[in-house]
């Protein structure tokens, strides 16, 4: 008798917790839904805020939280930048590295530096000489998007290639 009562209770608990889990999952998907198209694997893939280094050459690449790894899309962008720079040998560039606001100031300065250098290294492997590229980290000091949400943060985790002359 007692055993069956316990089993019955356990069953109720399981059913209840399943219901709760289901609700929670559903809620998360609806919230993220809108951003899904613009963030993939924590990296911004939209076109908002993206400028041009030259016609048809995007000026920036985006990073995942705490990461400086270049995504497939980032590498594609940087190859376009390298191709353009190979044809415009008189142009030097500055790569600005940035972080989002969700880290301590000093660590973010180092992280921005790491990101800018990841982009620089990639340009160099595509034939751009190191003395044409300088880097500067702004850490979290110069966000492009003032928002305090995952989409804004993803736009701010970036390195931007700008003409130096």
């Amino acid at each position: 008798m007692i055993l069956s009562k316990i089993l019955k209770n356990t069953f109720l608990v399981i059913v209840f917790s399943l219901a709760v889990t289901a609700c929670a999952t559903k809620k998360t998907t609806t919230e993220v839904g809108k951003q899904d198209t613009q963030i993939q694997g924590d990296v911004y893939v939209g076109s908002d805020t993206v400028g041009e280094l030259a016609k048809g050459v995007p000026d920036r690449v985006f990073f995942a939280t705490n990461e400086s790894i270049l995504t497939t899309k980032s590498r594609d962008t940087l190859r376009k930048q390298a191709a353009w720079l190979r044809e415009n040998t008189n142009v030097n560039v500055v790569i600005e590295g940035h972080a989002d606001e969700r880290g301590t100031r000093e660590y973010n300065l180092a992280l921005g530096e790491r990101r800018a250098n990841a982009a620089k290294d990639y340009l160099m492997t595509y034939g751009i000489s190191a003395d044409r590229i300088s880097v500067i980290s702004y850490g979290k000091e110069r966000p492009v998007d003032p928002g305090s949400n995952p989409l804004s943060w993803s736009k701010n985790r970036r390195s931007v290639t700008v003409k130096a002359n």
């Binding site: 000093e106 300065l109 180092a110 530096e113 790491r114 800018a116 990841a118 290294d121 980290s137």
Partner: peptide
Amino acid sequence: MTFAPRFSPDGKKIIMSFAKDGNS
């Protein structure tokens, strides 16, 4: 870039980070 500076307790040194080729 050099950053994150602080003095040593005797004030004679500055300790800080220096970023070289992306590594601090």
